[in-house]
């Protein structure tokens, strides 16, 4: 069950197999923990209205505005908690919160 490369130790792993002192040796492995299930409202990206200003990108607490080559390319629904901050700052109403 335990993924050693990602240092994902399953709950209730025998003490002999946990990491000493609780050290975690795979940085950023929280990426494998999904918080998308926290979402009540879901942001929907309207590519027609989006003018690629990227104002939504820095305001996301969950690093869930996906970008590439200075452009927004989508939303990381595995981690987005649906707070709506991105939708609120969008000057072009290109992100809309809908019921999940």
């Amino acid at each position: 069950m335990t993924d050693k490369d990602k240092c994902i130790v399953e709950p209730f792993t025998p003490w002999q197999e946990t990491t000493k002192g609780g050290v975690v040796t795979s940085s950023g492995n929280a990426h494998y923990y999904e918080t998308g299930g926290w979402r009540a409202d879901k942001p929907e990206w309207d590519t027609e209205k989006c003018r690629q200003c990227l104002m939504c990108f820095p305001v996301c607490p969950d690093s869930s505005i996906l970008t590439e080559d200075k452009k927004m390319i989508g939303i990381d629904y595995d981690h987005c908690k649906g707070c709506g901050v991105c939708a609120n700052v969008c000057p072009f109403h290109a992100i809309n919160m809908v019921k999940a």
């Binding site: 130790v9 003490w15 002999q16 946990t18 000493k20």
Partner: peptide
């Protein structure tokens, strides 16, 4: 779900 095992590991040291 982890703390107790870490403590047990510590006592082994």
């Amino acid at each position: 779900n982890y703390y107790f095992e870490h403590k047990r590991n510590q006592v082994e040291g």
